[in-house]
Amino acid sequence: MNLAKYPRRRYTSYKTPIEHLERLSKLLGGPNIYMKRDDLLGLAGGGNKTRKLEFLMAEALEQGADTIITCGAVQSNHCRLTIGAAVKEGLKAQIIMEERIEGSYDRNATGNNFIYHLLGVEDVHVVPGGSDMPNELEKLAEKLRAEGRKPYIVQGGGSNELGCLGYISCAQEINEQLFEMGLNIDKICCVSGSSSMHVGLLVGTKGLNMNIPIQGVSVGKKEPIQGDKVKELADKVTEIFGMPEISREEIVVDDNYIGESYGAPTKEMVEAIQMVAREEGIILDAVYTGKFMAAIIGMIREGKFKKDENILLLNSGSGYNIFSYEDILKEEVYTK
């Protein structure tokens, strides 16, 4: 896979570390848990979307864009980082917020919402949950074009074929690090949401013949829908590289820890955030990595990993949005 032929902006000048979560591993009685700290990526507070934006922003600049537009749920990490990338490149940014939980948008909220405005987002548009987001993005782009501007659309989560290159390159980075560390990993675990991270890891590890299975954890959709979504994007990416396709059987998604819906808190998420903070000093976010870690802890307790296995978790996001969940979290935090 020759990634060098794709234009790329570099927002992180180092490999994100792989840490052994020794205390957490001991507390849970195995397996040996390692974490790839993509919450320490560059741009505004870090998170996995930075890797995707390196390729997407390069295309935007090649096309002469002056405004970046994207979308996400209320408190979206992706929107925060996309605005940050636009700022870094001297471009304007507008975002569309999808209210997936009715009444959840608050213009004066803290967390990522505050960071949007701190970074100088030009405008925030709010639409109801279930809206056709690609259509909403195109409508906004048409409005800006009518004003004589040159918008570039970054799809939700940066999830398209180009965005997947971010995690194909991450697979290469992981491969190099594991060799340098002399560490054999039995399974890589990641969030499966907008799906480009999941797809990038699947394609990247397969292309490198790493023979490490990828365990996805859904934070929004049940397995049949999420698995098919991953498969659809994976087919597009493997076709680009002329690779054998990713079979549906290779796409593994756990959907047992979603809760009521995307973004809706769960008691398992609260427990996971507190446990990782107090055992490892790592702050997880309340939408993605909190539910992801709740699933990993749950699967360990259910015996779905062998005690002596080495598993690598992708920490895909920073914890800014945790401040918008204070009311849910602080009762546990202040009493234990």
Rank of each mutant, 00 (worst) to 15 (best):
Tyr116Glu: 12
Ala86Gln: 04
Glu99Gln: 14
Gly84Trp: 02
Arg145Ile: 10
Cys79Thr: 07
Pro134Cys: 05
Gly120Arg: 11
Thr82Lys: 07
Glu89Tyr: 11
Ala141Trp: 01
Gly90Glu: 12
Val74Trp: 12
Leu81Asp: 05
Tyr105Gln: 09
Ser104Ile: 11
Tyr105Glu: 04
Ile83Gln: 04
Ala86Ser: 13
His78Glu: 10
Lys92Asn: 11
Thr110Leu: 12
Pro151His: 02
Leu144Gly: 00
Lys88His: 07
Gln75Ala: 05
Lys139Glu: 02
Val121Ala: 01
Lys150Tyr: 00
Gly120Trp: 02
Pro128Cys: 07
Ile83Glu: 02
Thr110His: 14
Glu142Leu: 03
Leu137Glu: 01
Gly84Met: 03
Ile101Pro: 01
Ala73Phe: 11
Ile95Ser: 06
Leu137Thr: 02
Gln94Tyr: 03
Ala146Asn: 15
Glu122Trp: 10
Asn108Cys: 11
Glu142Ile: 01
Asn135Lys: 13
Thr70Glu: 09
Glu138Lys: 15
Glu142Cys: 08
Ile115Gln: 00
Arg149Pro: 02
Asn108Gln: 09
Pro134Ile: 08
Asn113Gly: 12
Gly120Asp: 01
Val74Ile: 12
Arg149Asp: 00
Lys139Asn: 05
Pro134Trp: 14
Ile69Cys: 05
Ala93Cys: 14
Glu142Phe: 02
Ile69Ala: 08
Pro151Phe: 08
Cys71Arg: 03
Lys139Thr: 00
Asn135Asp: 10
